[in-house]
Simulated scan of single mutants.
Amino acid sequence: QSSQSLWNRLSVLLNLLPSAADLQESGLVLCNEVKDILSGAELPDLKANLLLPEDVALRNLPPLKNAHKRFNFEQDRPIFSAVEESVVRICCIRSFGHFITHLQGSILQFNSELGIFISIAQSEQDNLLHQAQAQFHMAAEEARRNRLMRDMAQLRLQLEVSQLEGSLQQPKAQSAMSPYLVPDTQALCQHLAVVKQLATSGRFIIIIPRTVIDGLDFLKKENAGARDSIRYLEAEFKKGNRYIRCQKDVGKSFERHKLKRQDLDAWNLYKILDSCKQLTVSQGSGEDDTTGMVTIITGFQLEDPSTFSAPMQSAIQAAANASVEIKNVLEFYKQWKEMG
């Protein structure tokens, strides 16, 4: 009872959530188990025994031991949609609110006429309407503050991206290095340490296409470098490193199935080039010159392209026609270090 702000915020949360009647009238498609829970959402003793993912995750947490006695953790957890899981959570929270209002001396009350929860001190119980207006105002302020925080986070992200990609608008002497680097499978397997340094420099964004991940997966049984690269990438993706990004499938592209059987290296380079083209399209406005925006860094030696197969030479030429540079990863690293 001494923490008025706690009850105020709890009432705001309860009033932001839709009531059982609102959910029933929304036309949501729900399974029978969830419908049964929904019918008791406005009661203080909701008989809910449907397992949610958080119940399983917190199964052995001592403070919840008594609350979990009603669950049967041995049976398979029913499969609910994301909407159905959300409805169950809302029902449990709303029912908890009604439970609190029935506690002796509670300063949280439910006004059935207004259909809202109200947090009031004992001396203020005669001014329900005023309190209701205050609660709605608090809810509006909370929503405004949340929007402001989201906008600030978005502006911060835009600033970071613009700083990282600012080299595109800088003088040529400062913008000789592409902000986006796309390593191939050979670069990762043979020179992972170099790729790591490029990623941690804060100067480049490393893009990992799906075809490169597939290539590492294909080599992992026999190639230690592939296994090390997979472990490294998994750890960075899990941490959410913004300088290393996994590019999803780029959609429809010319698959070149015959080429895949004849020359796998050329096929992989074409697939990586497809990813680079998609990246330049997503980052450019259509009128911007995207020359130099993306560089493919490879483990292959490129001093004498004539030593490559005809399909590989064609793939290299296709990259040049698309204004995508291809450089040996060690040569690129050396050039970057020399530029300071």
Rank of each mutant, 00 (worst) to 15 (best):
W267H: 15
K221L: 11
E124M: 09
A121T: 11
L164S: 05
Q133I: 08
A176H: 02
I93T: 10
V34A: 02
Q154T: 10
L38I: 07
S86F: 03
H137L: 10
A199N: 04
L51M: 13
P53Q: 09
S323L: 07
S178Y: 02
L192Q: 07
Q278E: 12
M138I: 07
V212D: 04
E74T: 03
S178Q: 08
Q262A: 08
S314D: 09
P171L: 12
K334D: 11
I244S: 00
F96N: 03
I37H: 00
R156N: 09
L58W: 14
D76W: 02
A121D: 09
I116E: 06
R150K: 15
N66E: 14
Q75T: 13
A134Y: 12
Y232Q: 07
V212R: 03
K221H: 13
P183I: 09
T307Q: 14
T211N: 05
M312T: 14
V194C: 03
V294F: 04
A139W: 00
G115E: 08
E141Y: 09
K69D: 04
Q154K: 14
E124S: 08
G240N: 09
R144H: 12
P53D: 07
S275H: 10
S201A: 11
A318S: 13
I272N: 02
K260E: 12
I206N: 01
I107M: 00
L198V: 03
L157T: 10
F218Y: 13
K65M: 06
I230P: 06
V161D: 02
I120V: 13
E54R: 11
D55G: 02
K220E: 10
N328M: 07
M149N: 07
L181I: 10
R145H: 12
P44K: 11
N32G: 00
E84Y: 11
K271C: 01
L233E: 10
Q131C: 05
T200Y: 11
D55A: 03
I205L: 10
D151K: 15
D55Q: 09
C189N: 09
E42C: 05
L148W: 12
C246N: 03
S178G: 02
W7H: 04
G166R: 14
H257M: 04
Q313K: 15
Q158L: 11
H191A: 05
Q75E: 13
R231P: 00
G105I: 02
S162A: 11
R94M: 07
T295A: 05
A20R: 13
E42P: 02
Q283I: 04
I107P: 00
N60Q: 09
K69M: 08
D289C: 08
I116V: 14
G202S: 06
Q186H: 13
